[in-house]
């Protein structure tokens, strides 16, 4: 293996590690959201959502780093960056790619868990949202307005 490749391996491993940590944080956040929803604890949900905004904000820099590193692999191996994956990079690296291969598996598991949790949270949130909308519409209609037209939701006299 060339010294140029040797320089890229730690970088890709660091990038995957960073993504793995990010996904773990997302998972933890989703679990908090799920708990907040199941406990109807709006304050916890709001706290979790606030943290989620920070987590989402971190995704973009990681994406940029990932794109730059794949370009470096493209230049080194003459293979299009779009066709490169962590699996193909680990295979090309041979023995040097074993650690990356293991990390890839961990990341894959983490993403699967994030996906499942996210699906549950989305279901809960959509359900709650539907009930709330229905309740708001009922109240707005009682107040003489039409929810879809944007009536006065707050009884200022109460």
């Amino acid at each position: 293996m060339s010294s140029a490749v040797d320089g890229l391996v730690p970088r890709i491993e660091a990038l995957v590690q960073e993504e793995l940590c990010a996904q773990r944080r997302v998972l933890e956040n989703l679990v908090r959201q799920e708990n907040a929803l199941t406990n109807a604890d709006i304050a916890s949900l709001e706290g979790a959502l606030s943290e989620a905004r920070d987590l989402a904000a971190g995704a973009s820099p990681r994406e940029s780093q990932r794109r730059m590193l794949l370009k470096d692999f493209e230049r080194l191996w003459g293979v299009s960056a779009k066709s490169l994956t962590l699996g193909s990079i680990a295979a090309r690296l041979g023995g040097s790619g074993r650690r990356l291969k293991r990390m890839r598996a961990e990341l894959s598991d983490e993403l699967r868990e994030v996906g499942r949790t996210a699906a549950r949270v989305r279901t809960f949130a959509r359900y709650h949202q539907g009930v709330i909308r229905e309740a708001v519409e009922r109240v707005v209609e009682q107040e003489g307005g039409v929810a879809s037209e944007g009536g006065t939701l707050i009884n200022a006299e109460a």
Binding site: L30, L37, L45, L49, R53, A118, A119, V121, R122, A125
Partner: peptide
């Protein structure tokens, strides 16, 4: 409304994730 916004935000966040 706070509940509704929070649930909406949660749902949107899931899409973002």
């Amino acid at each position: 409304l706070r509940y509704e916004q929070s649930y909406q935000a949660a749902a949107q966040y899931i899409s973002a994730v």
